[in-house]
């Protein structure tokens, strides 16, 4: 067998082999999710270092007798309490309009995990909302009825994995909202608090 014949056979064999490979699906998602997981490990390590530095700095200020106002008490995670009646400020599309950061979400404890983008919700007065779960852009519509009755829909979204903040779950489950100063609260049909958000700007 000459080299040329062998080379031709090789080309054919490789072509046949390549053609036998089944169609692969979800390559983009697997690659981006895998890369983000690896990146998240790096962030967690950097975040832990930053938290340690911040703790030392705060302790230092405390020892120096700073007159700074006490910081906000930590928000309790885990099981959400059954709500008291929310402060009766009638929420409207105008009053919820703006950017909100999550303070607490029932059953979700990873709010402070490092993410590629800020996990915020943005309500617009025209009845649409956008936001980010930390990794993916979110969007949808909402409406506010009398006495804070609330409904929302969500549009299509990517599903890149990270500690995705479940804004969409909160919005879909919420039946009522209330605003208390700069805090926005969501409640389910039983009046249980699903989540609270603080106005970002």
């Amino acid at each position: 067998m000459s080299n040329t014949d062998l080379e031709d056979d090789l080309r054919g064999t490789f072509e046949r082999a390549a053609a036998s490979v089944p169609e692969s699906s979800g390559l983009t998602e697997r690659a981006t999710t895998g890369a983000q997981r690896a990146q998240r490990r790096t962030w967690i390590i950097s975040g832990a270092a930053a938290a340690a530095v911040a703790a030392i700095a705060i302790a230092g200020f405390g020892l120096a007798g700073s007159n700074n106002k006490p910081s906000q008490p930590p928000v309790a995670g885990g099981q959400a309490p059954v709500s008291a009646t929310p402060t009766p400020q009638p929420p409207t599309a105008q009053t919820v309009s703006g950017t909100w950061r999550p303070l607490q979400m029932a059953g979700f404890k990873a709010l402070k995990a490092a993410r590629p983008s800020d996990p915020v919700l943005v309500f617009r007065a025209d009845g649409t909302w956008t936001g980010s779960d930390g990794c993916n852009g979110l969007q949808g519509t909402y409406s506010i009825g009398q006495r804070g009755a609330f409904t929302a829909t969500s549009g299509p979204q990517h599903l890149m994995g990270c500690d995705n903040v479940p804004h969409t779950g909160v919005l879909k489950a919420a039946k009522r909202i209330a605003i208390d100063g700069d805090t926005l609260q969501f409640f389910d049909a039983d009046g249980r608090q699903l989540a609270s958000y603080a106005r970002a700007r």
């Binding site: 390559l27 697997r30 690659a31 890369a35 690896a38």
Partner: peptide, 11 residues
């Protein structure tokens, strides 16, 4: 192999 190559490229 494809996934590893794509992950590294994505980064």
């Amino acid at each position: 192999l494809a996934q590893i190559a794509l992950m590294q490229a994505f980064r």
